[in-house]
């Protein structure tokens, strides 16, 4: 465990807690894409299949349970909670899951480290995580403006994977044979996808104006 990895995990944890807290306190999910949240629940489910078979550390298991629990709670809130669900904008959040799920599944079947069910599922979760934010970014562009908490949520989500890239670079230089190009490529694609959002987020923050994403 290095500082980049810990910072990345804490940033990731903070992003899901910010979102869960926002939905829980103001009982609203305005501006939040349910599609993205469902994709994240799928990412964690397919990524953590080994949660009960391979014990790595208490920290690892606890964090996996938190990510699984928070992502499914957020989906539950938006789908089932009698007050929160009213603020869900289903007419705007129309991105089709299968446009992302199917290509990632096909890619994972053909490009993976080992052709076993768990390994293909794990690789699928990497590819899917890289693109899971797209429905959320599309929704932000459609709704034209974005409240601070949602902006912070997306920013933290992007920052966590950028920190993981630093962690991979660090491990590459400190651990022998640490080569995982699939993880690296998926992680870089994911961070680049956020890059344009980062650009507009910083612009709005610097000019102290509401964030407007270009159409």
């Amino acid at each position: 465990m290095n500082i980049f990895r810990l910072a990345g995990d804490m940033t990731h944890l903070f992003s899901v807690l910010v979102l869960l807290l926002k939905i829980h306190t103001i009982k609203s999910c305005a501006g939040i894409s349910l599609k993205t949240q469902e994709l994240y629940a799928l990412v964690f489910t397919t990524r953590y299949l080994d949660i009960f078979t391979d014990f790595i550390s208490l920290y690892n298991t606890v964090m996996k349970l938190i990510f699984l629990g928070s992502s499914f709670s957020i989906v539950w809130y938006i789908r089932r909670h009698k007050i929160v669900r009213r603020s869900y904008d289903k007419d705007q959040d129309t991105f089709r899951h299968y446009f992302l799920v199917i290509p990632c599944l096909v890619l994972a079947v053909f490009i993976n480290h080992k052709f076993t069910f768990k390994e293909v599922m794990w690789t699928f979760s990497l590819y899917l995580e890289a693109v899971a934010i797209l429905p959320q970014l599309v929704l932000l562009q459609r709704t034209r403006n974005i409240d601070n908490l949602t902006g912070q949520y997306v920013f933290l989500l992007g920052a966590y994977r950028a920190l993981y890239i630093l962690n991979w670079i660090y491990r590459h230089f400190t651990e022998p044979h640490y080569v995982h190009w699939i993880t690296w490529i998926a992680g870089v694609v994911q961070t680049l996808l956020y890059a344009d959002f980062f650009y507009y987020y910083f612009q709005s923050w610097k000019n102290n104006e509401k964030l407007q994403l270009p159409a």
Binding site: R5, D9, H12, R47, D50, D54, I56, S57, N60, M63, K64, F67, H113, K114, E119, W122, Y164, N167, E175, H177, Y178, V179, H180, T183
Partner: peptide, 10 residues
């Protein structure tokens, strides 16, 4: 295998 070491990440 080296792949194991990556599974220690989240």
């Amino acid at each position: 295998s080296s792949n194991k070491d990556l599974k220690d990440e989240l």
